[in-house]
Computed example of a mutant assay.
Amino acid sequence: MTQVDQRVLLQQIKSDYRQILIDYFTTDKTLKEKIDKFINTVFCANIPVPQIIEIHMELIDEFSKQLKLEGRSDETLLDYRLTLIDILAHLCEAYRCAISK
């Protein structure tokens, strides 16, 4: 994969993860499919877990800055650690299933 392809893929992964974060505490019926698609992409692209954590932290930082600009508290963003835990759990399950085959 070329460097340009890697950057495009990482931007798509970040965009997909942003949407998962936005939808995570809503009643979005397609959230499970979005998470499954995201995990499949990350798994197939062999994206390391620390990079997923980095993407999460970057997005939370962006959300925090936006909330502060709007004069709102960013304390609710702490709840989004659950999203990261959920994503990592799904990724671990994908790795576990791949190893057992």
Results as ranks from 00 to 15, higher is better:
Gln51Asp: 06
Leu69Trp: 12
Gly71Ala: 14
Lys68Trp: 10
Val42Tyr: 01
Ile47Gln: 04
Glu54Ala: 11
Asn46Tyr: 09
Ile60Gln: 01
Phe43Leu: 03
Asn46Val: 09
Phe63His: 13
Ile60Phe: 08
Asn46Thr: 07
Gly71Pro: 09
Ile35Pro: 00
Pro48Ser: 08
Gln66Glu: 13
Ile35Gly: 00
Asn40Glu: 08
Met57Pro: 00
Phe43Met: 05
Ala45Thr: 09
Cys44Met: 12
Asp36Thr: 09
Lys68Ile: 14
Val49His: 05
Thr30Lys: 03
Thr30Tyr: 04
Glu58Val: 04
Glu33Ile: 03
Asn40Ala: 05
Lys32Ile: 01
Ile53Trp: 08
Ile52Ala: 05
Leu67Val: 07
Glu33Leu: 11
Leu31Gly: 01
Ala45Cys: 06
Phe63Asp: 14
Cys44Thr: 13
Lys37Leu: 12
Gln66Tyr: 13
Lys34Ala: 10
Leu67Asp: 04
Lys34Asn: 07
Ala45Val: 04
Leu59Thr: 02
Lys34Trp: 01
Ile55Pro: 02
Glu58Trp: 02
Ile47Cys: 10
His56Cys: 07
Pro48Ile: 04
Thr41Gly: 05
Val49Met: 10
Met57Ile: 11
Lys37Phe: 08
Asp61Phe: 13
Glu33Val: 05
Asp36Lys: 11
Ile47Thr: 12
Ile52Arg: 10
Glu54Ile: 12
Glu62Asp: 15
Gln66Asn: 11
Asp36Trp: 05
Ala45Glu: 12
Asp36Arg: 06
Gln51Asn: 07
Asp61Trp: 12
Asp61Tyr: 12
Lys37Cys: 10
Phe63Ile: 07
Glu33Gln: 09
Ser64Cys: 09
Ile35Asp: 01
Glu33His: 08
Ile39Gly: 01
Ile60Glu: 06
Lys65Tyr: 10
Lys32Pro: 01
Thr41Ile: 15
Ile35Cys: 01
Lys37Tyr: 09
Leu31Asn: 00
